[in-house]
Design a protein around this nucleic acid. Sequence first.
DNA 1: CCGCCAGCCTGAAGGC
DNA 2: TGCCTTCAGGCTGGCG
Length: 264
Amino acid sequence: MPELPEVETITRQLRNRVLGQRVKGVDILDPKLQGQAIERIRGGVISSLRRRGKNIIFGFGGTLYLIAHPRMTGQFSWHIDGNSLKHLRAIFHMSGGDLCWIDQRRFGTLMVSEDLNLLSGLGVEPLSPEFNEGYLYQITRRSLRRIKEFLMDQGRIAGIGNIYAAEILFSAGIHPQRRANTLSRGETDRLAAKTKAILSKAVQEKGTTIDNYLDTEGGKGNYQKLLQVYGRAEEPCPNCGHPIERIRQSGRSTYFCPHCQRMK
DNA sequence: CCGCCAGCCTGAAGGC
DNA sequence: TGCCTTCAGGCTGGCG
């Protein structure tokens, strides 16, 4: 569910509250999460909190890590109500309060590891300087994949999901089914710039809440108000008024304006 | 390498 | 009211 901006928001909020705190205990309520040896972090002090792609990484002195991935509906929260109680999957008892892991669909993962090798397959961070116009041009040259799948391929660029892929491509005026290696230098330049612009703006707005994403304080994001095409099938394109189309691409909904985003 | 599909889960929404 | 289908922001593994 959450993509880079939502995971970044969660990570920042957690960092403000849990750095330096000790994990006094862990309750694993969902049997799916057992066998991950999560209790190994008991007694550890959280020394770092960061995001990599859509993963949230709690560091314990550089020798142990807790890696959380929310997938579709996973979320951390300091608050539990009658509704979220149903989906409470784990509780981290911190010196400063109880942190709950809530996950309606149970796709989310929690893993403990002594290193971060599990994340070694992730591609570049789109908001880092490493990801720039030249880099995007270069990596698209070798790919025959369609550009939307390319953007969502975590092994190439880490953190973009279905919503932001649609918004980025609309903003760059590129059809989601164009092959990556057919984009011109001008188009990849625009795509790189729009990727950064949209993701940064969405981070600033604390992400997008469409269905059930909430931050660690139970707050919604604001970016859903700024969505141009995602979820807007049949509505007029904000640029040209042509109805926005919804197609199925690799099993996922893809929204775009056929007039502003041409196959050429 | 590429695309497609099923599968992992739960719940909401819409049609009948 | 209830049953059925479809859909959902992610990712993996298998197949052709």
